[in-house]
Design a protein around this nucleic acid. Structure first.
Lengths: 241, 241
DNA sequence: ACCTGAACACCGTTCAAGT
DNA sequence: ACCTGAACACCGTTCAAGT
């Protein structure tokens, strides 16, 4: 009897099962609640058992990012570089929006795994295939930054929040008071808030369309890259200083 | 005697002293080592004493960011918007480079303090003073993102590392082996690495000039903003969808 | 080979008590 | 009013032991 029960639950807990469980758990309970202890519990195992498959928590997080990379579409063949880059970035973005824990985890990675290097490599490949010089491609990749992953460090929005609780909206009279305070103390912010909200409900809450803003900046950069490419831009690192 | 000794050490520990000490401690020992307990110890006080001046650790971090904001230069008067924005961003960047803990802390802030709102407000003001529409200014601020703070989420570099340990560079034969592996597995990354390193020592280590890359992307965006402004660009939020 | 138990050295924070 | 002591409910990780 005991033998049988053990056989049932002892699906032998390989690295993949650990990573898979970690992703599911993080999706469900959020990053803060993802501890080695809690993950072990979810797998009906003592915390220490995890350390046979993952060196430490950092490596667990590295592995979780690797599974994300696998969800991003490969480059679309036979389209211009700009389309290819755009499609791939937006694919990455969809993946990221499905896994809210991913942004902070990617931001804090300090090791670059082979899977991540592979992703970067195909990303670089899209520019090179489009005829970009190595030099321009290099700087372009830097300018892409985390946009390569489908996100940017947003300064206004609350997308970074933990639990998915949307902004609790205040009572109308409180909103009016807030608008008053804002107009007095932050006149410039007030101007753009009013302007942005003119077909929106609330003046003070952020009625921003994150997807629009993301694509706005992305396209601004892509257009800039295109212009530099057409001009055969080069950094002058080998000349001056 | 006891009375006197108490009087000496009991500089009464107000909010400012707590924040100041926190900044100094974070500068010295890094963000990970900044705990409420350690901070209390530094102030010769029991951990709980801090909670009379700061609601919790989040509020401590908020306060630390506020002190940073105070170190950023105000907008330079009587210069074109582009110059003003550029100078201010680079001032913010210098502040950030002095306080390596600031980037991750800013990234995780979820409350916007009055000091931060004030900073944003004067930032917005530079565009409005330059004749930008509220609409364009709004999207431009989003596109700036964390560049407003003088940083971007860098994907290549190791600036995000904790203690300031610079990359340990490998022995020449190891480097050669790494280059071999890289050329085989990541041919595109290899191409730009070789290109970037042609007057640099190492092919595999990143010989990237962070400041150059930061300004490259910043200027690309500023040029893009300028072009949109000259064209009287508008988002078409009120028309279509 | 793979998993476990007990322990170590930490966290942030609460609560009731001291002066 | 301001600070303290002791405790609670957690962490990640090590080490020696079990099967």
């Amino acid at each position: 009897m005991i033998q049988h029960a053990e056989a049932v639950r002892r699906v032998p807990l390989n690295r993949d099962r650990v990573l898979q469980a970690a992703v599911v758990l993080a999706d469900e309970v959020g990053l803060d609640a993802l501890s080695m202890r809690r993950l072990a519990q979810e797998l009906s195992v003592v915390p220490m058992a995890l350390y046979k498959h993952v060196a430490n928590k950092e490596e667990l997080l590295d592995g979780m990012v690797d599974t994300l990379v696998g969800e991003i579409d490969p480059p679309t063949p036979d389209v211009p570089w700009k389309t290819a880059v755009r499609l791939r970035v937006l694919s990455a973005r969809r993946v990221l929006l499905r896994h809210p824990w991913a942004r902070p985890v990617i931001e804090t990675r300090t090791n670059t795994t082979p899977a991540v290097l592979g992703y970067m490599d195909t990303f670089v490949g899209m520019f090179l295939a489009g005829g970009f010089s190595e030099d321009l491609t290099h700087h372009v990749m830097h300018a892409m930054g985390s946009r390569m992953w489908g996100f940017t460090q947003e300064v206004f929005d609350d997308a970074g929040r933990q639990g998915g609780n949307p902004k609790p909206k205040a009572a109308p009279e409180v909103q009016a008071a807030m608008a008053q305070v804002m107009a007095e103390n932050y006149p410039n912010l007030f101007r753009i808030a009013v302007s942005a909200a003119h077909d929106d409900e609330s003046v003070v809450g952020n009625g921003c369309d994150d997807q629009f803003e993301f694509e706005f900046a992305l396209d601004l950069l892509l257009d800039g890259f295109e212009r530099l490419h057409q001009r055969n831009w080069t950094s002058h690192r080998s000349e001056g200083a």
